[in-house]
Design a protein around this nucleic acid. Structure first.
Length: 264
DNA sequence: ATGGTCGAAAGTCGA
C-alpha cells in the first residue's frame, strides 16, 4: 500500500511576501497537496513557476487583489470542481478539487468578522455568521466523501484559546459564532481532526498575534485553523501535525501550517 | 491595560 497522502493547510498572509516560508515547509516536510489562504494576489501574479519548481504542477487558484485569496497546489493530479462565493460579493474565499479516488478537498477562508461580536453593531460579524449559514446549507447536502480545510477564524473549545474567559466577548471565540460553527459541523457530521488526534483538554493553537512582543513566552494562541473530514473518511485519517515551530521562522505568518495524512 | 504588528497600498484598512 502506498504511503498516506499529506495535505497541508496554511494561512500564509501574502504568498508574495513569504515565499521563503513555503521553501522551509517543503524542506522539512513531504507535502503532496498544499492549501493556502490569504494569498493576497491576483491569479496572474501568483508565483506559479516557483511552485512548479517544487513539483506542484497542478495549481488551482481563486485569488483577488489585496485581500483574501485561496489556492490549492498539488503534486498529484487533481481536478477543479468548485469555487463557491458564499457571500455573493466576489470575495475569493473557497476553492475545491477532486482527488484521485474521488474524495473532494475544500479549502476555505472564513471571514474574520471584525471586532464586535454583534451583527447590529458590526456588519462584518453578521457577514461571518451568514457565510457560515450558507456553508451549512451547502454542507448538509454534500454527497461526496470530503475534506474541509482552512482558516475558519473560530476557536470553538475553551482549550482552543489561551484564556476562554478573556475571549468570551472577542470575535473568534464568542458563543454565537461558536454555536454557528457547531451547526456547520453537525450538518455533515464533520470530524474535527485537530481534536480527533489531540483530544481535549490538551491545549492546541494554530495562530498567535503579531502584536505580542514574544509569542512563545506569552503563548496567547488560538486554534483558528482546522482540518475536518466526512465520517466515511475518519478511518483513513492517519495523523494531523500542527507545525508550531513555523511561528518562529523568519518573517512568519501569524498562522502555522497543519499537515494531515490520509490513506485514501 | 483598547496597545501592540503585520501586508497591501500609498489613505488607511483589515486582520
Amino acid at each position: 500500500m502506498s504511503r498516506p497522502l499529506r495535505i497541508a493547510s496554511w494561512n500564509i498572509n501574502s504568498i508574495r511576501a513569504r515565499p521563503h516560508l513555503i521553501e522551509q515547509l517543503l524542506d522539512g516536510h513531504a507535502v503532496d497537496i498544499l492549501c493556502l489562504q490569504e494569498t493576497k494576489c491576483e491569479d496572474n501574479s501568483f508565483p506559479r513557476a516557483a511552485m512548479e519548481a517544487h513539483g506542484f504542477t497542478h495549481i488551482h487558484l481563486a485569488g483577488q487583489r489585496m485581500h483574501h485569496g485561496v489556492a490549492i497546489l498539488s503534486r498529484v493530479p487533481v481536478e477543479p470542481v468548485a469555487r463557491h462565493d458564499w457571500q455573493a460579493n466576489g470575495e475569493a474565499r473557497h476553492i475545491a478539487v477532486r482527488l484521485p479516488g474521488g474524495t473532494v478537498l475544500h479549502n476555505v477562508y472564513v471571514p474574520a468578522g471584525g471586532d464586535i461580536p454583534d451583527r447590529t453593531q458590526n456588519p462584518k460579524f453578521g457577514q461571518k455568521l451568514d457565510f457560515l449559514g450558507r456553508m451549512t446549507e451547502w454542507s448538509g447536502a454534500l454527497a461526496d466523501p470530503s475534506i474541509l480545510v482552512g482558516d475558519f477564524n473560530i476557536a470553538p473549545h475553551p482549550e482552543d484559546v489561551w484564556d476562554p474567559k478573556a475571549l468570551l466577548d472577542v470575535v473568534s471565540h464568542a458563543p454565537l459564532e461558536v454555536e454557528t460553527l457547531g451547526r456547520l459541523q453537525q450538518s455533515h457530521g464533520w470530524i474535527d481532526l485537530g481534536r480527533h488526534f489531540v483530544p481535549r483538554p490538551e491545549r492546541l493553537y494554530t495562530w498567535w498575534s503579531y502584536r505580542a512582543s514574544d509569542w512563545q513566552a506569552s503563548n496567547r494562541g488560538r486554534r483558528l485553523d482546522h482540518v475536518w473530514c466526512s465520517p466515511a473518511l475518519a478511518g483513513t485519517a492517519r495523523g494531523l501535525t500542527t507545525l508550531v515551530p513555523a511561528r518562529g521562522w523568519q518573517r512568519p505568518s501569524d498562522h502555522v501550517p497543519l499537515i494531515a495524512e490520509f490513506a485514501l
